[in-house]
Design a protein around this nucleic acid. Structure first.
Length: 393
DNA sequence: AAACAATGCAACCGCGGGATT
DNA sequence: AAATCCCGCGGTTGCATTGTT
């Protein structure tokens, strides 16, 4: 196992970055890109290790960083995501454009944890503290048994690792709701998006499994079995459901594998079947079809895929009202946890009806304008979506 | 005003694991 | 196959700032 040789090199500066160093790094990266991080300090004329340069760029100098205090919605989103993902800060950060994992981690440790405790919620389990304590006792009493049963080298499951044992218990509250995923079928080169009825026994683990497998498979360059492209169900009135089970949201965790078209970064092309599967001429429709006119056609199977603009304005207003019912200065913790952010209707997140990517830029502007009339949340979602896609360009 | 404590946050560190040699 | 390089992640540290006594 290799170590960071750079860390042991002599005469490298450590600690806070000076404005001059920032400028050198900015100048270098904006001119040449970062390329191999280990070579950046030498090329940029910095007495730093590549790791330090990378960190400085990612956490501070990157132009797409948002800066400033976190909004209520962002904090709510972090709480929700943490309840499902645990301390996977990078995955959480992937859902908050312009925010870094470090920033979120700091916020969690310095602020959110305390707020949760004040509300009587255990920040690790996301359960009421008394309940969490009881379970801790139970878990302690089970430890010895677990040890007896422990298998050597057995990897923990994603849910175990993420402090989300609660997620295992959650059942799909509406078995008729659908999820969508892009499935790669290598045997006949027939890539498709399918909508599938979820069994009533569906748990968050079901989604997490796909969430994780898409990340893992794409990061290794293999053929992804699933993508993070899901129409999920969620009951905003039921705290036992999660954003991963939201009927009203097409939830876009970062699209980990798509290779994007430079011209149309918000739609881009997907690495569905090996190398860049280009959707640049792909036309979407609302009736279950999608084709780019080549052999690499993509089909929406099953029922309608409810992308569309009709309800955008209405739903945005609803979402906004729900977010700020009562005095916005006194948002109560249950609201914090239930995340009004996720009550936004599906159409607001991604609209592709009848849209050819050739007209994408124009349509994007029109749609943004229309939705802005219903509240500026749409814009944020668009930014979020763009960032999710755009970060791979 | 000074001393001390608490807080926030940038940066570091060690590690896991994929890629390359 | 083993060694090395490199990247990214999560935990931790340490310093500057702010608040309290």
């Amino acid at each position: 196992m290799g170590r960071h040789s750079c860390c042991y090199k002599q005469k490298l500066r450590k600690g806070l970055w000076s404005p001059e160093e920032d400028e050198k790094l900015m100048k270098h990266i904006s001119q040449y890109g970062h390329g191999c991080w280990s070579s950046v300090p030498k090329l940029a004329g910095l007495q730093r290790c590549g790791k330090s340069c990378r960190l400085r760029w990612i956490n501070y100098l990157r132009p797409d960083l948002k800066r400033g205090t976190f909004s209520q919605q962002e904090e709510s989103l972090i709480v929700e995501l943490h309840s499902v993902l645990g301390n996977r800060w990078s995955q959480i950060a992937a859902q908050l454009p312009g925010r870094t994992d470090n920033e979120i981690k700091n916020l969690w440790n310095s602020s959110i944890k305390k707020k949760l405790r004040l509300r009587g919620i255990d920040p690790n389990t996301h359960k009421p503290i008394s309940e969490a304590e009881n379970e801790e006792e139970e878990s302690e009493s089970n430890t010895s048994n677990e040890k007896l049963c422990e298998k050597v080298n057995e990897k923990p499951t994603i849910v175990d690792a993420g402090n989300s044992d609660k997620a295992l218990e959650r059942k799909n509250p509406n078995p008729n709701l659908k999820y969508a995923s892009i499935i790669n079928n290598n045997n006949n080169n027939n890539n498709c998006i399918s909508l599938t009825n979820l069994p009533s026994s569906t748990t968050d683990e079901f989604f997490l499994d796909r969430f994780v497998s898409s990340h893992e498979s794409s990061s290794t360059g293999g053929n992804p079995g699933y993508f993070n492209f899901q129409l999920l169900n969620y009951d905003s009135g039921n705290p036992n459901t999660s954003p991963f089970l939201n009927p009203n949201t097409i939830f876009f965790p970062s699209f980990s594998s798509p290779i994007l078209s430079n011209n149309h970064p918000s739609i881009g092309s997907f690495d569905v079947n090996g190398p860049h599967h280009n959707w640049s001429n792909c036309t979407f429709s609302n009736n279950g079809s999608c084709s780019n006119g080549s052999n690499n056609s993509i089909e929406l199977q099953s029922q309608n895929f409810p992308w569309g603009l009709e309800n955008c304005v209405k739903s945005e207003k609803e979402a906004e009202i729900r977010s700020f019912e009562g005095n916005p200065e006194e948002i109560k913790w249950p609201e914090y946890v239930q995340t009004p952010f996720f009550t936004i209707q599906n159409q607001t997140e991604f609209t592709t009806e009848g849209l050819s990517t050739a007209n994408w830029d124009q349509n994007q502007q029109q749609q943004q304008q229309q939705c802005l009339e219903g509240g500026n949340l749409y814009h944020k979602h668009f930014q979020r979506l763009s960032a999710n896609y755009g970060q791979f360009s």
